[in-house]
Simulated assay, not measured.
Amino acid sequence: MTSDSEPLPGQLLGAVWLLRAEAVGLALLVVFLVYETVTATATDLVNALFVTAFAGIGAAVLWALAVALGRRRAGARAPAMVLQLMLLPIGYYMLQGGLGWLGSPFIVLGLLVCGLLLSPPTNRALGFGVERR
């Protein structure tokens, strides 16, 4: 097993940065949703707050997973991959709805982060496939 003092392999570092970027993007969406909720003339306040809170929780979870993976916590890989795989149907339905310019990057991003999280250097850094004592 690698020690925590060794630098993160490029693949794991890339996944961590992409997860952080997703968290920041979702946090910016939360700011927009708060603005829309405050300035809207006719709104269902309960639903607006629920959607905003859901996006905020998503941003916090993505950030926490990025931090955990940056600290080589193997248990963070599976939840991070689940969130990335959720981008696939979102991107697919965006493609079907005529938003290919937005749906395609979602699909590519989800597959890219999953690939980085499953790469052999990431496996070694997280201690997968290494005999533990």
Rank of each mutant, 00 (worst) to 15 (best):
V67Q: 13
E6C: 03
A42C: 05
A80E: 02
E36S: 10
L8F: 06
G10W: 08
L88I: 10
A74F: 01
A80V: 03
L45Y: 08
A78M: 09
R133I: 04
W101K: 15
L118G: 06
L62D: 04
L62A: 06
R71F: 00
M86T: 00
V24Q: 11
T2F: 06
Q96P: 02
G100K: 15
V113M: 11
R71W: 03
A59H: 07
P121E: 04
A80G: 08
L12Q: 12
R71H: 08
Q96C: 11
A40N: 05
S3T: 15
L109P: 07
W101S: 15
G97W: 14
G25S: 11
V16C: 10
R132I: 13
F50T: 05
L99M: 13
S5Q: 03
L83Y: 10
G103Q: 08
E6R: 13
G127L: 11
L62T: 06
S3M: 10
L85M: 14
A64D: 05
E22C: 06
T37E: 01
N47I: 04
T37P: 00
E36V: 02
L13K: 11
E22K: 05
M94Y: 10
L69Q: 00
V51T: 03
V38Q: 11
L99H: 15
I107K: 10
A27Q: 15
S119H: 14
P121D: 02
V67S: 11
P89C: 09
T39W: 00
L13P: 01
F50S: 06
A74Y: 01
L45R: 10
E36Y: 03
G25V: 07
P9Y: 00
A64H: 01
M81A: 02
N47H: 04
V82T: 13
Q96K: 15
M81C: 09
P89I: 02
A23M: 14
